[in-house]
Design a binder for these strands. Structure first.
Length: 879
RNA sequence: GGGAGGUUAGCUCAGUGGGAGAGCGUCUGCCUUACACGCAGAGGGUCGGGGGUUCAAAUCCCUCACCUCCCA
């Protein structure tokens, strides 16, 4: 089989994805003797496009799934999508508006139908993108948060929580988004610093001609004031108790009240109280039984209650007008520049309007406490654990969750109202009718917060509330991989509902990834125009390079600056792998991959590479286990490129010449090492590894079908060989020295040189002598010999305890050596001095551990012997 | 206001008590029959500042400065 010189990922990547899919390689078993391993995908928006954050998380999930699958687990990565209530509805709404109509004029049924059509049209995008990335999802188990099964799970969960009293309906002050025309949860409110103004307004007293001053950032809400409050201990205002102020512009009598929440230091220590439009004031109003005057409506316009002059006016316009009138009428005392935090709707960006409204709530305090406590003493593991405090703080101070949304796209709340206004909550309309004793029921028009359904994701996807085989096999799941930005939105809710409904943590571990940023560390955003489409990267660099880059950059607790240069480097790594295999196949004709090898029958370079491979195998497993994908990738890269390609293949080249007796064994070792390396790489680079693995002769003995199902290498103890690693390290050091000296002497790549060695350690001397053919090839030497005495007129040194000399035929190096040696002696002196000082320090000898003392002693011996060797060279004397 | 994280080579980042590392970029020399998406070599950092603990500090403690992010 002839391989192209340069690899082209686009030529084979999707071929393999189709092949895997046709053969159902990734299909998990509902019942299996194997241990199960399960990851649920964080469901992306069904009509959305995957961004780099998804690519990162999907890469990690796929890597883990492939790794465990190869380790023999019954591995399931379950894919799916989220209906994404608001996001999707808004998108279709915009589309409808472009056609000159509105959702209201279409009506609910027709509009929702339009969204379903939109969903059908775009739902394939996510799969397409995941396929291109190489995701090994089990698509036979794909779920959608609005499919029948999940809808049933949602109704079941709602009804049970209602029956337990955890879900209830009530009138409260909620975060209203005038931009979306719906209530939203606390989490969907984003605090933004706003440069506003603080207005000091005088309120006359009802009796007499005195007046007091209050400060507010929202003067338009004064139209809804129903009291003025001060702190109970505030000496200044005690005599106001029982008295009244007159509300300017309106004339309403406002009682003075005392309440603990008032901060005496703020402004004058007197605050206006608007129970219908401020959370603190709402609470004060409840404590003091104040009336609520709602002056702003759900679209941010002034209401009738505000008065004829104001009704219909936008809240911003009303503010300007109120200020103008207060100024005209002498009530405006002063206006200050004032920077403060204002809640904004995360999705629509408009300022939140706190509004009194009847909504459904879920009191999650008990569930949060149980989530904190863990199950049977086992707490959720967060990786990295830096999120622990944030997690605990949030769960510890949780407030009721507003779960109803005034939208049309989503799970309609399973509550029905009789003509008399009685509420019936049931699993379906029939059940509700049976309870109510009448068919004349109207279902609550609201839908549930999107996160309510995705909060059930880990078990509803497996068939809950039914006790399905999938649920038994895969639940609880093993790992959740997601961004910290939805730790509370989603992770916390899954943990709470998981414990509540199943009595178990839905996953043992949560791996929180960082945010993908651009190479300058800037957050990617459409407005900045620095977003990168993962598909573009895949098309340019290949999915494997993108995956390797993302995995290699995933350091714990850190954001990920996507460096295109680095990705180009990993594409080059792919090319390196491609060519290493190309070389191996071309030079090993007749040989095949071995299932196992006996190192005792092999030459040093073969024993060395097997030992190194065994170590890397163990290391990669260990690093995956610890979610250190960056370190795993570094190990893979360093081994394949730095050891296998740079050294072993070079060492094998002479032996792989056709008539060498060592050829068959070397060829077998090379193919075996390549084969295992490809398996080792497979979780990170699935396409390339499959493409190449399928070409290896004898790979059927490892697995009949696919590398994706072949066992993951675990590191053979029998291959570890400290001795050969140490000998080879010395050998490689000396080769490095010879190459460096060649370069310094200005030798051309073909100019031969000679290396002679004097080694006092017989075993090492024998080893080095035996490597002569290799050494001559690696460093372009005419001679490599262990001798009794170093020759004159050579460049001499001492490397890893061996006296070495490099000479060039017909060239006396003594003069140029003199210069070099003197400069090196100068560099050596302070190092020796430091170690001599350290070892002369009694405290160091007494207190430092023996191995540290020993190490430094050895180091000093080494440096001193090197100095002696150089001095000897300098004086042209005997070594 | 509370909390978390960061500051290490030109760039992006590893390294958490014992001789400062990687990738990319830079410089030099090479198309050496796997790979120029390559090979061989080189240069480059008083580990943000200051103080402390220790025989020993990039690493632990204190403090200051600057930068992110989360929560109120």
């Amino acid at each position: 089989m002839i391989m192209e010189k340069t690899f082209d990922p686009s030529a084979y990547e999707q071929k393999w994805q189709r092949w895997w899919s046709e053969r159902e390689i990734f299909r998990a078993e509902a019942d299996s003797a194997k241990p199960s391993y399960c990851i649920m995908i964080p469901p992306p928006n069904v009509t959305g496009r995957l961004h780099l954050g998804h690519a990162l998380q999907s890469t990690i999930q796929d890597l883990l799934t492939r790794w465990r699958r190869m380790q023999g687990y019954n591995a399931l990565w379950l894919p799916g999508t989220d209906h994404a209530g608001i996001a999707t509805q808004v998108m279709v709404e915009r589309q409808v508006e472009k056609e000159g109509t509105t959702r209201e004029s279409l009506g609910r049924e027709a509009f929702v139908k339009r969204i379903w059509e939109w969903k059908e049209k775009h739902q394939g995008n996510i799969r397409q993108q995941l396929d291109e990335l190489g995701a090994s999802c089990d698509w036979s188990r794909e779920r959608f948060t609005l499919d029948d099964g999940m809808s049933r799970a949602v109704r079941e969960a709602f009804v049970r929580l209602y029956e337990q009293g955890t879900i209830y309906r009530g009138e409260y002050l909620v975060n209203w988004s005038p931009g979306l025309d719906t209530a939203i949860s606390d989490l969907e409110v984003e605090m933004r610093e706003v440069a506003g103004k603080l207005y000091h307004v005088a309120y006359p007293l009802a009796e007499g001609d005195g007046r007091i001053v209050v400060a507010t950032t929202r003067p338009e809400t004064m139209l809804g004031d129903t009291a003025v409050a001060f702190h109970p201990q505030d000496e200044r205002y005690q005599e106001l108790a029982g008295k009244f102020a007159l509300l300017p512009l309106v004339g309403r009598k406002l009682p003075f009240i005392a309440d603990d929440v008032v901060q005496p230091e703020f402004g004058t220590g007197l605050v206006k109280v608007t129970p219908a439009h401020d959370l603190t004031d709402f609470e004060i109003g409840k404590r003091h039984d104040l009336p609520r005057v709602q002056v702003i409506d759900r679209l941010g316009r002034m209401t009738e209650e505000a008065g004829d002059e104001w009704v219909g006016m936008d809240r911003d316009a009303a503010r300007a007008r109120v200020v103008e009138r207060l100024r005209d009428e002498g009530y405006l005392v002063k206006v200050e520049e004032y920077t403060h935090n204002v809640g904004h709707c995360q999705r629509s960006g408009v300022p939140i309007e706190p509004l009194v409204s009847t909504q459904w709530f879920c009191d999650v305090s008990d569930m949060a406490a149980r989530a904190l406590a863990g199950v049977d003493g086992v707490e959720l593991e967060l990786v990295p654990d830096t999120w622990r405090k944030t997690w605990e703080h949030w769960l510890g101070s949780i407030r009721p969750w507003c779960i109803s949304r005034q939208l049309w796209w989503g799970h309609q709340i399973p509550a029905w109202y009789t003509a008399e206004g009685e509420v019936v909550v049931a699993r379906d309309r029939q059940a509700a009718a049976a309870i109510a004793g009448t068919d004349e029921l109207e279902q609550d028009p609201d839908v549930l917060d999107t996160w309510f359904s995705s909060g059930l994701w880990p078990f509803s996807t497996l068939g809950w509330p039914d006790e399905t085989a999938d649920l038994r096999t895969f639940y609880p799941t093993d790992v959740l991989v997601t961004g910290f930005d939805i730790l509370f939105f989603w992770v916390a809710r899954m943990v709470m509902t998981g414990i509540h409904f199943t009595g178990q943590l839905p996953f043992r571990t949560v791996h929180l990834t960082g945010l993908v940023r651009d190479a300058q560390g800037q957050k990617m955003s459409k407005t900045k125009g620095n977003t990168v489409d993962p598909l573009d990267l895949i098309h340019e660099y290949g999915a494997d390079a993108l995956r390797f880059t993302l995995a290699a950059l995933d350091s714990p607790g850190r954001d990920i600056p996507l460096d295109i240069e680095r990705m180009a480097g990993y594409r080059a790594f792919g090319n390196k792998i491609w060519n290493a295999v190309r070389f191996s196949l071309a030079r090993t004709e007749g040989a095949a991959v071995a299932v196992d090898l006996d190192p005792s029958q092999l030459a040093a370079p073969e024993r060395w590479i097997l030992s190194r491979l065994a170590r890397v195998e163990a290391e990669v497993n260990e690093r995956f286990e610890a979610f250190r994908f960056d370190e795993a990738c570094r190990a893979l890269y360093g081994f394949f490129w730095g050891e296998l390609c740079d050294w072993y293949i070079e060492l094998a080249k002479p032996v792989l010449g056709v008539d060498d007796p060592g050829r068959p064994r070397a060829a077998e070792v090379l193919l075996t090492v390549i084969e295992r390396s490809l398996r080792l790489l497979h979780p990170v680079m699935p396409f390339l590894s499959e493409e190449l693995w399928q070409r290896l002769p004898g790979r059927e003995a490892i697995h009949q079908e696919s590398i994706a199902l072949a066992p993951y290498p675990r590191g053979r103890e029998a291959w570890l060989d400290d001795r050969v690693e140490a000998d080879m390290a010395s050998f490689m050091e000396i080769i490095g020295w010879a190459r460096k000296r060649r370069a310094e002497l200005g030798l051309g790549p073909r100019d031969p040189a000679e290396v002679t060695l004097v080694c006092s350690e017989p075993a090492l001397a024998g080893f080095l002598a035996a490597q002569s053919p290799l050494a001559r090839a690696l460093a372009t030497l005419g001679r490599w010999e262990v001798v009794a005495e170093l020759p004159p007129a050579a460049s001499r040194d001492r490397v890893v305890g061996v006296d070495v000399a490099l000479s060039v035929a017909g060239r006396d190096l003594e003069a140029e050596e003199r210069v070099r040696v003197e400069s090196e002696l100068g560099e050596l002196a302070p190092q020796i001095e430091r170690l001599v000082g350290l070892l002369a320090n009694d405290d160091f000898i007494a207190k430092a551990p023996a191995n540290v003392v020993g190490k430094n002693r050895l180091r000093l011996d080494e440096l001193e012997s090197r100095r002696r060797a150089m001095l000897a060279a300098l004086h042209g004397g005997e070594s």
